[in-house]
């Protein structure tokens, strides 16, 4: 095995380990927002590492895998932000375990303002 192949194999292993942890996080977390937290971070680094590993195993694909990595790093956080925001607009409020709900959920005031505006109309 050449050095490139060993690096590629290690990257594949790291990537799949993080993807597994992301999946486990989605299974274990109690509500949508926490699942998004686990899902976004673990899948971003997991997929990046996995694809870079493929690039090391097949050096002729390297440049294309780098483009894919840039797109993943850009689009993953945007999509999770859109999911979280849409989820809140559908009135699925985040789980609050400790403390006062009003105080712990700062975004509630914004949605309440919007609701009041709609009622006035």
């Amino acid at each position: 095995m050449s050095a490139m192949e060993i690096i590629g194999a290690i990257l594949l292993l790291i990537g799949s380990a993080f993807l597994f942890l992301g999946g486990l996080g989605i299974y274990r977390m109690p509500d949508t927002y926490n699942r998004l937290q686990a899902g976004t971070k673990a899948t971003t680094l997991g997929a990046m590492s996995l694809i870079l590993g493929v690039g090391f195993l097949e050096p002729s694909w390297m440049i294309k895998t780098l483009i894919i990595i840039i797109f993943i790093a850009y689009s993953n956080p945007i999509s999770s932000h859109a999911l979280a925001r849409a989820n809140y607009k559908r009135k699925h409020f985040p789980l609050i375990l400790h403390g006062d709900v009003k105080e712990m959920d700062a975004y509630r005031e914004v949605t309440e303002k919007e609701e009041n505006k709609e009622e006035k109309k």
């Binding site: 985040p94 712990m104 700062a106």
Partner: peptide, 14 residues
């Protein structure tokens, strides 16, 4: 967090 059995989270929006 995921691997700790007691799931140490305290979620909220700031």
């Amino acid at each position: 967090r995921v691997l700790t059995p007691s799931l140490p989270i305290n979620p909220g929006i700031v």
